[in-house]
């Protein structure tokens, strides 16, 4: 069993920062098993978590100065919430980990504190039946752990409820932007090809004046969809994410038209009003995966309706723009 340092070092910080930007995000692991924070004894509480390094760093920071056992399940470097959904943070793994680490001989009590977000993977009654340990669901957020422990393991209603405030949304944005590289590449290629055909010239300096405006507009649409929409999410009218994104996109398109409109052809302006909302709607739809309140059935329904509309609007816009270039 390993003893845990509770101070976070510079490499920890750098690694965490990289993870948030999507660099080496997956499989940022620590070894699964039992860890001692401080000097835990037979009466010390046992906290269960995932072997995801970011979670582990957060836990040891919150637990500084306390004596607790930390039982990390093998989730292959995935956080508790996602691992519980996949089943790796699950009943069987917990039962096995309890037995393999010899936990029953180390502690006299029979209570495990499992994060509430791990509940989709853990059947508390089955753990109890198999090991004698009672699963007590603790707070959702690690930052509430000190208060939870100080209250004698009592969970307040606020600790039980999902939260999705501005700060929660802000930390998700970097990954959103980085993950957009694939569509970004495709769209940039599309722009180059269409422009090259339109001006019948493949040299960079001939392409630049035709290609630059649509590229800038795409970037505006990307930012509107993956940065502005998430930030303003609760205040944009409607419930469907694509609809929220489309509104932000339409507004951005109108703004762009007002700024640059006088030098533009009608075809460009029409294309703008179709393509930008389509792209922002698409990125907004992607943001459903980052939230804690969208259901599978809801997302399926939204995609069935929104995707055809998004694709249609995009195609119409691109065709109008291409025709405008050729005439």
């Amino acid at each position: 069993m390993a003893r845990v340092a509770t101070d976070i070092t510079l490499p920890d910080r750098l690694g965490g920062w990289g993870v948030r930007w999507g660099i080496n995000r997956m499989h940022y692991t620590v070894a699964a098993g039992l860890y001692a924070v401080g000097q835990p004894g037979s009466q010390s509480p046992v906290l269960v978590s995932a072997n995801y390094k970011l979670t582990f760093d957060q836990l040891r920071r919150e637990l500084a100065g306390r004596d607790v056992w930390l039982l990390l399940l093998e989730t292959f470097g995935i956080n508790v919430w996602c691992a519980a959904g996949k089943g790796t943070f699950g009943t069987l793994e917990l039962i096995n980990r309890i037995n393999r680490t010899g936990l029953p001989t180390l502690v006299a009590h029979r209570t495990l504190i499992v994060p509430q977000l791990g509940a989709p993977g853990i059947a508390a009654h089955e753990v109890k039946k198999a090991t004698g340990f009672k699963v007590h669901y603790g707070p959702i957020r690690a930052e509430d752990l000190p208060e939870f422990l100080d209250r004698g393991m009592e969970v307040t209603p606020a600790m039980r409820r999902a939260r999705f405030n501005l700060r929660d949304r802000l930390v998700l944005i970097p990954v959103e932007v980085v993950q957009a590289w694939k569509p970004t590449l495709i769209i940039c290629l599309l722009i180059v090809v269409v422009c090259a055909f339109a001006v019948r010239d493949f040299r960079f300096f001939s392409l630049l004046p035709v290609g630059l405006p649509p590229t800038v507009l795409y970037l505006v649409a990307l930012l509107a969809g993956s940065v502005v929409t998430p930030i303003l999410l609760p205040w944009i009218p409607g419930r469907a994410f694509s609809l929220k994104g489309a509104q932000v996109g339409l507004l951005s398109a109108i703004l762009a038209a007002l700024v640059m409109g006088s030098t533009w052809k009608v075809a460009d302006l029409v294309a703008l009003l179709f393509v930008v909302p389509a792209i922002t709607a698409y990125f907004a739809l992607n943001f459903t995966g980052c939230t804690t309140f969208t259901s599978l059935s809801g997302v399926e329904k939204e995609m069935r309706i929104a995707l055809p509309v998004i694709i249609l609007a995009f195609v119409v816009g691109v065709v109008v723009w291409t025709v405008g270039l050729l005439t």
Binding site: G85, L285, T288, C290, S297, E300, E302, M303
Partner: peptide, 12 residues
């Protein structure tokens, strides 16, 4: 409940 993740990418 039919459980799953409400994520467009996962559904896709």
């Amino acid at each position: 409940v039919r459980s799953g993740v409400g994520c467009a990418y996962a559904v896709w």
